[in-house]
Design a protein around this nucleic acid. Structure first.
Lengths: 377, 377
DNA sequence: CTGTTAGCGCCTTCAG
DNA sequence: CTGAAGGCGCTAACAG
């Protein structure tokens, strides 16, 4: 069908091996032959057969990037950053594969299988994880297998896997076919645990709540994300820590002033309406993220409430549109691009793992116009 | 290293061929053997070796999706839609590969090469194309080669390639290696021209401008996208057509009232400032897209101008945040999800090509609060 | 520095 | 319905 290495070799008057060598460039070849080969490649418009070379070399140049929602800039920015580190110029043309799990644990596993099947060079898992015992175990198992197969694993924006989930079972039930490659030299025991680039969600949420507290707010509603997600839990913990530190009494009401929903606009809209029903005297609302905050603002406006005069609102993530919202949104900045880029480098092994395998990315309070002191009626 | 087909075969007490057959499921196998094999697969945690099967079968299950900017929801939504059609349940687990070109023609070509090397099953090119003779020719050539290699090509959100760029040269210089697979039966001449899902940018822009005209606006500024992009040109053409139809005199000023920039927020900010310098008596501003419109609004606000009382603003695309902007943004809705999903189906051959190979997606005017009649001083 | 020789793991006729 | 055998295109030791 297509042009093959042999065709190029024939045209250049050399052996296939030589062509292979000049193409991969990791082996000495005479200048003259090299250019002769290159010319043949040009003339024949030869393009390497990826599957064939992956098979022979037992490695591929695919890197998987799993995201919960590719239509959400939060993930788009990270994915873009990861990919920016795979520039053909920078890293020999790795192909970053962005996979959209839609937040579904099953699809997460499915994609990991697909990537394992492609013998991906690395996999980057971004965004919050689902905290379900069974799923965590399944995920850990799959990651372990990927890792054993030589795929590098990087977590970005999610916490490391719990210890107990990582500890693998050691029995490799391997059957017959009398050991090909007869000796057991393949013992490249790179630290098998995934590398993690975590976000300081707790700290960010704590500082955000402290900011509201300092402004004088005491009745603070919280439109949180899905209950089962790590990010949701961490942000909530930071919030409540700040509350407790300021006045333990505030904590008592926290439960009632919290509603859960998805990480989308309508959850914010509906969520704040529910909060208003429960506590009409709310003076501030924290949202799970900036998108949710937008929904909160819309609902508040529809209720005839002014921001921040009547109610203060704050988001999380500091996505690009947040600064342009009216009023500009107070939020917590996460350096998504930097984090993604780092994850990309880690995935390619171009940067060495941080001590302990976990790097935590700082978050920063961005106090803007959507928060102000509460009304003093 | 890893578990192979042979391992599974041995454990199930059958031949490798049989295992292959139950796994691909396209060949009769006795129920008993089938389940025995399946069990062995389970026990061994076998995962097919993608490269190997791609090599042997000469097809892969990768589908490339090229986008100009993955961090932009415009592309995120389309990519997500394309991918949603490749659900493991729907289409035998195709892997959609989202590639971020950053709008660079060179990277577009590079990614196409990478995809060709992977022997991708299909490629979807989304978003506006660069109108440069040389690049168009190079692109057409590469697409033709991909197409010849059996990769299906779909354009989504960009116009079909110009006729003259498509017409291929017929000489296939193929050398030596005395024809393997000795007969020339592989003559599967599917219509080689790319299928297109185009957006009606012209019509949308025309209706948008007519809307402003109907409100009474006559001095309308336009912060357009990059000059060399098809989308930019089409939207501008629609705008000017409306202007000319309404009053040819308006066209005279159109050039002066147009500035070009990137498809981002800061272009909107800077662009409208420039327009204001050129024509302080502007009553309305059209933006290249919603993101740009946000920048326009920010700049206007910073200048102490109210929207829409002092200046009306409109965007394009109707991204999710547009309805939540304050004021809600008047814009033109493009059904990005539907378009992307259709492109995905077309790419998989699950939907037959539209007559002429081009389907045009309707756009719809969304008149909201950011546009109103001009001030009557 | 270059050619030769074996596979990599799977699919696919072709017999049985 | 199942097994045997050859090859997909490339890489990786080995020899020269």
């Amino acid at each position: 069908m297509a042009v093959t290495l042999a065709d190029v070799a024939a045209r250049a008057g050399v052996s296939a091996a030589t062509v292979s060598r000049v193409l991969s460039g990791n082996y000495p070849v005479a200048g003259a032959t090299r250019s002769r080969v290159l010319r043949a490649v040009e003339e024949l418009e030869y393009v390497v057969n990826g599957p064939a070379s992956a098979l022979a070399a037992a490695t591929s140049d695919l890197v998987g990037v799993l995201v919960n929602d590719i239509a959400d800039p939060f993930f788009g920015i990270m994915a873009s950053a990861v990919q920016s580190e795979m520039e053909p110029e920078k890293a020999g043309g790795k192909l970053a594969v962005v996979c959209n799990t839609g937040g579904s644990p099953e699809r997460e596993l499915t994609y990991l299988t697909l990537l394992q099947r492609q013998r991906a060079a690395a996999v980057v898992l971004t965004g919050s994880a689902v905290e379900d015992e069974k799923h965590t175990a399944a995920l850990a198992a799959r990651l372990r297998r990927l890792s054993e197969a030589g795929t590098r694993i990087v977590l970005c924006g999610r916490p490391p896997l719990p210890e107990d989930a990582v500890s693998g079972r050691g029995d490799a039930l391997r059957s017959g076919t009398a050991g090909r490659d007869a000796d057991g030299t393949g013992a490249e025991d790179e630290s098998t645990a995934p590398i993690t680039v975590a976000f300081d969600n707790r700290g960010g949420a704590r500082r955000l709540t402290e900011h509201l507290l300092a402004l004088g707010h005491r009745r603070i509603g919280y439109v949180a994300g899905p209950v089962e997600r790590t990010t949701t839990r961490h942000r909530l913990e930071g919030h409540r820590t700040a509350l407790a530190d300021h006045d333990p009494a505030l904590l008592a009401d926290a439960e009632r002033l919290t509603v859960h929903g998805a990480y989308d606009r309508s959850s914010g809209y509906d969520g704040v309406l529910e909060l208003l029903r429960r506590a009409p005297d709310l003076t501030a609302v924290l949202a799970a993220n900036d998108t949710v905050a937008l929904g909160v603002c819309a609902a508040l406006r529809d209720q005839g409430l002014r921001i921040p005069e009547d109610v203060s609102v704050a988001g999380f993530d500091d996505l690009p549109f947040s600064a342009d919202a009216a009023p500009a949104l107070t939020t917590v900045r996460i350096p998504l691009h930097e984090a993604g880029a780092r994850a990309g480098r880690l995935a390619l092994g171009r940067e060495s793992a941080p001590p302990g395998g976990v790097a935590t990315v700082r978050t920063e309070l961005m106090a803007r116009a959507s928060t102000a002191p509460p009304r003093t009626d």
